[in-house]
């Protein structure tokens, strides 16, 4: 869960925002004049939910390596790169789905692993190395 207030602090500093969102995610949120606070909060909540699937102690959250993008149909899709992809492989986490919801002042997300719909490989889904 991410309160919108926390995001207000982040978006006021571009360098800070660039540490938690990838360039592609930042492009998603700057199509309008005002930053999409609920949208960013939802993404951050989803990144944290995905990270918790990896069950790794003593690791920092690889914010930019867990990208929450948008499918053509509008639903969120997870793309893992770099350390995030490696942590998922080590945790034998396959395809990941997330669901994001918003309330008046915060966003919440849930992430779960599901059998890989494409049956591509035991560990492959949207991961890129």
């Amino acid at each position: 869960m991410v309160p919108f207030g926390r995001v207000h602090d982040l978006v006021s500093d571009k360098a800070m925002l660039a540490r938690v969102l990838s360039p592609e995610e930042i492009r998603l949120f700057h199509s309008t004049d005002e930053p999409d606070i609920p949208g960013i909060a939802g993404r951050l909540a989803a990144k944290e939910a995905v990270f918790k699937l990896f069950h790794v102690p003593d690791q920092t959250l690889p914010w930019r390596g867990i990208e929450i993008l948008t499918a053509d149909g509008g639903w969120p899709v997870v793309r893992l790169t770099g350390r995030a992809a490696e942590l998922a492989r080590l945790a034998a986490v396959g395809h990941i789905a997330v669901s994001i919801t918003h309330d008046a002042s915060c966003a919440m997300a849930v992430a779960f692993t599901a059998p890989n719909p494409d049956h591509r490989s035991a560990h492959g889904s949207d991961r890129q190395h």
Partner: peptide
């Protein structure tokens, strides 16, 4: 927490003047 951690790293950097490689941080 994980979000405050991002800001904490930023505070340590600005306080010390030392740049920290955010992707290779030793959480210890």
């Amino acid at each position: 927490d994980s979000l405050t951690f991002v800001e904490l790293v930023y505070v340590v950097e600005s306080t010390t003047g030392v740049e920290i490689d955010f992707d290779n941080i030793d959480i210890q």
